[in-house]
């Protein structure tokens, strides 16, 4: 479900879960990989999902970067936030539940790369 975008201006005078995300890089259904990077500091990308490949489930909008807000900065420019869906068996090699089980979470655009890329190692 992609509910971001829509009219500018008036969309935000009414409370909504979502905010506009102009210029967003990925679309619903795109295969994306979470970057396999381990920088220090406050991050909202759990270690267990780094390097994993999932599918964009929805575009949440653009929000101030929590990695900057955490240190007293204003978090601008905003970063696009996506919900990404992963297959449990692809996240945990020894996942014991059925192959159909899923796990979903929110990942910021700067933590994603297209799944086709070989991805860097740092």
């Amino acid at each position: 479900m992609s509910a971001a975008g829509g009219e500018t201006g008036s969309a935000q005078s009414r409370p909504s879960t979502y905010t506009p995300a102009p210029g967003h890089r990925y679309e619903v259904g795109d295969a994306v990989r979470v970057k396999r990077r381990y920088p220090p500091g406050h991050r909202r990308t759990p270690h267990y999902i780094r390097g994993k490949v999932g599918t964009v489930e929805r575009i949440c909008g653009a929000f101030p970067n929590p990695e900057e807000l955490a240190y007293g900065f204003d978090g601008e420019p905003k970063k696009v936030l996506y919900r990404v869906r992963f297959v449990q068996k692809e996240v945990w090699p020894r996942y014991r539940g059925p192959a159909r089980d899923l796990i979903e979470m929110e990942i910021f655009e700067h933590w994603l790369e297209p799944a086709g890329d070989t991805g860097g190692r740092t």
Binding site: P39, H47, Y48
Partner: peptide, 23 residues
């Protein structure tokens, strides 16, 4: 240690904070 065979680098990385306990 996670029992699920997750990748070692993620699992034991020195920059993994004490709050990052999923798995």
């Amino acid at each position: 240690e996670a029992p699920n065979g997750v990748d070692e680098m993620a699992e034991k990385h020195p920059n993994r904070g004490p709050q990052d306990i999923g798995g």
